[in-house]
Amino acid sequence: MKIENLIALFKEDKPRISSNIIHVWAVFWANFKIFLSYKTWVITETISTVASIAMYSFMGLQVDARRIILAGYGEVSWLSFALIGVATANYLWMCISRLSHSLQHEIREGTLEQIIASLIDMKSYIIGQSLRGFIVSGYFMLGVMIIGVAVLNVPLVINLSTVFSFIIIILLMVLSYAGISIMASGLVLVYKKGDPLTFLFASVTEFLGGVLFPLKYLESYPALWTMAWLMPYTYALDASRRILLNGATLFSSEILKNVAILIIYAIVFIPIGLKVFRWGINRIRYEGTVATY
């Protein structure tokens, strides 16, 4: 072997040029494969999801049907009302916590440095991880819906236009929270401890969004009522319920209003989230704490 040839080979300046789409796919696929390897986790989470729906169905037996009319969706059962709330809240929680959770794992396992040092653009990393989050959470949301409709006979309006409208609302809901998720990840990079921001948002969302009770009951508490309608989730949940309980579509006036609000939230929060994330990355690079935990 000629050593000169070897040195020349190493010296060769051949930058790897691959498109961002390939990077996104690589991040997604690597993480999706990890997810598939956690078979026990998937099975246990699936059974837990089924158990929680069963639990809600028993809770529903104690609800006074007349009081659910106050929610403004007509004469619907509490279980159908709650099923949409639980499914969307869980989906949102899983999606927005995904990015910060995976960054925490990378930090703990000491692989963050390699990722940052690689040619992968951090935007591609964020999108790839988020895609994985959408798909995995989608599996659980679909599971909740299928059990609700097929096993518990929850009467939801399911047709092509309602399903399409519901998917769009879910996408907008996730986008409206994407900024917060990215922001939380930026903070995780710097502070290395948990992700209190997503936890806080998940708890407040579940409480103020009216997952288990009609929001009408918050009217007597003006501060809470105002806070509830400041959250994008409230609009997403309202739209989802109007679609799946009353058969409204994306083009119904009350849904269009919710869609517009969700888009505004997405436009405002995503750039802020990206800014915080960039600040986080730059700070740990500057401080030399990329690999520390």
Binding site: M59, D64, K193, F213
Partner: peptide, 30 residues
């Protein structure tokens, strides 16, 4: 982990308040 401490307490309060609001739509019969 002071912030987590506050969140633990806040999470617990929110949980109790959620079930308080849920109880408003239930009956005591059962």
């Amino acid at each position: 982990y002071k912030f987590w401490l506050i969140l633990d307490i806040a999470g617990m309060i929110l949980f109790v308040v959620t079930y308080y609001l849920f109880s408003l739509i239930t009956t005591s019969q059962q």
